[in-house]
Structures are given as C-alpha cells and as structure tokens.
Design a protein around this nucleic acid. Structure first.
Lengths: 159, 159
DNA sequence: TGCCTATCGTCAAGCGCTTGACATGATTCA
DNA sequence: TGAATCATGTCAAGCGCTTGACGATAGGCA
C-alpha cells in the first residue's frame, strides 16, 4: 500500500465519485430551476421552510449546513419577492418565524418539478432496488462521518 | 401525482442524500486538510496536476468543473507557496504547463493522508463489497446525468 | 430586583468564485 | 503572404458566502 506514490487511484475513490456525482446533479438541476427563477440555494431554503414551518433562521441555517448570515440574506431576497414571510415569535420577540406565502408554495411546486425530473432520471437509470440501495448507502456515509445525521434531516425532531 | 403537496418526501430523495453525504465528506476532510495547510480546493488541483502533469489551466478547469479564473488564481497562490510550477508550452508560447514541485508533491502526500482517512472510515463502515457498490452506483449517476463522464475523469484520455 | 449567560439577528469586512470583456498567440484558409 | 478563427490567459466587476463583532431579548440564579 505504501509502495511509491500512494494516490494514483485518487480519482477512483468513493469520496471523489461522490463529488463528481454531486456536481453532475447540481448541473442537471440548475437549468430547470433557473427556468422557474429559483436558484438551487433558494430552493433548498424553500423546501425546509415548507417542511418545518416556523423555524428560526438560525435553526434553518444549522439544518442547511450554512451560516445564519446566508439564511438571513436569502430570506431577505425571498421576502422581497413575496415568497416568504417573517413573523415575530409570539414568546421571543427577537426571534423570527419563517413561513411560506401562497406564492412561495407555488414557486416551490414548480421548482420541485425540475428536481423530481433529475430524481426520476436517476431512478430509471438504476432501477428501483438499486436506487433504494444507493440512498441507504449514502445515508450510512452521512451517519458515519457525523455532522448532521440523516435522522435529524428527515425527522420532525423538534418544534 | 397531484394529490396535495407532492414534495413531503423531498429530503428522503437520492439527490438530497447525495448532497448530505457530500457535505459530510467535505466537513470530515476539512480539518485534516487544514492541519497541513492545504484547503480542499487546493488539494483537488494538486491531485489533478500530479496525475496529469503538463496540462493547461483551461484544461484543468474543465476537469475540475470550475472556471479558468479559479484555476489561475489557485495556481498563482500555489506557485507563490512553491508547490507548483508554471512552464511555458514549447510550441504554444501563450499556454502554460502546470507541474508539481518537490515541495508540492510532499504537501500533496500529506494532504492525501487526510483524504485517505475519510475514505478508510467509509470503507470500514460499509465493508469492501458495499463500498465498491457505492462507487459503481455513483459513477452510473454521473454518467446518466452527463456532464463530465466518469471515464473522462479517471482516464488518460489525452495528452 | 439585578446580574449573568445563552441565543437570535444584524452590520462590516474579507475571500473565493463567476461573469463579461479584452489582449495575445497559433492554426486554417483564401 | 494576409485575414479569419479559435483557444489560452489576464483584468475588472459583481455575487454569495464566511468570519468576527455588536446590540437585543429571554431564562437562570442569588
């Protein structure tokens, strides 16, 4: 294993394959999302706000793996476009709950079509079983490497 | 299909699992790479220059999926640190060949240790067979979604 | 009541990357 | 030879995100 240069196989590792696949997915989603005027980052936030309405910006940031700044800037833009609504938390006056407007729900619906199309292509290419296997393997990787566990992302863990 | 909100399962899709896994991998690599003073983006360029010495900045950019600007800026920094060398192409005086210096090779070796550690953790978690399955599935996704085919990345396709 | 701590949100500065435009050099064709 | 075309590399401007610091609010404790 230590014989000579050890990284001739660098590009054939899983971590690289993962990066390539992620880049390909992003590239595949981008035109569809752009067509409906919802960049990828905006889409990600919209989905989370839809699935977990009323969360604070800081909490969203943790789930998305970005800083609170990024969420705040994004939220400002989405609010300006009328897709998102900031409400003051009833108990904590300094905290803002984020909710989707009707227009936001519509935009999300349209954007999701583009993402679903990519998911469909992958599913058709792999077939249902291997599609499911891939998801399971990816979740195990996420779990093993820590960070936000896959459970946390999909669960309704807190309110 | 149109029954109610259609994207309740958004976070359980493969495309999301892929993103989560990629984020986890990046987060897992980062501290190790930072320890040896080689950020992730620098590492990616160093690996490619090592595997395909003499490529032009534009060609590298295509393979890395970034712009020529990004490569040029990176190359400038790496050159300033003495890890990388710019040589004028013998025939095309306007083209610069990129090569690793000895210091660059050493830095790459150290940095690669951190990446290998992540790869090892994933391999141990999944076991050899499923590890290989994951790589195969990811390559198929990359192939299906087009962009730079997995072959192009690993192959010695051109010189 | 008053102090301390934690959390949330915002402001300012910096960094990395992209986009667009331009200059240079090499190849192709008339 | 001379002009058109293409690829490479660089300059300038803009955008998105991060880092660091600050003010504001709610809960814990004496």
């Amino acid at each position: 294993m230590e014989s000579g240069t050890a990284f001739e196989d660098a590009l054939s590792r899983v971590v690289w394959a993962l990066r390539r696949a992620e880049l390909a997915v992003q590239a595949a989603k981008e035109p569809g999302l752009r067509a409906v005027g919802v960049p990828a980052a905006h889409y990600a936030l919209l989905v989370h706000v839809h699935l977990f309405p009323g969360l604070s910006g800081a909490e969203l940031a943790r789930r998305l793996g970005v800083t609170t700044q990024a969420v705040a800037l994004l939220a400002t833009k989405l609010e300006a476009r009328g897709l998102l609504e900031r409400r003051v938390h009833p108990r904590h006056r300094n905290v803002q709950e984020l909710h989707l407007t009707d227009a936001g729900s519509e935009a999300l619906q349209e954007a999701d079509t583009a993402v679903l199309e990519v998911e469909r292509r992958v599913r058709e290419k792999l077939g249902p079983e291997r599609h499911a296997v891939l998801r399971e393997l990816l979740d195990e990787v996420t779990d093993e490497l820590g960070g936000p566990s896959a459970r946390q992302w999909t669960g309704r863990g807190q309110g």
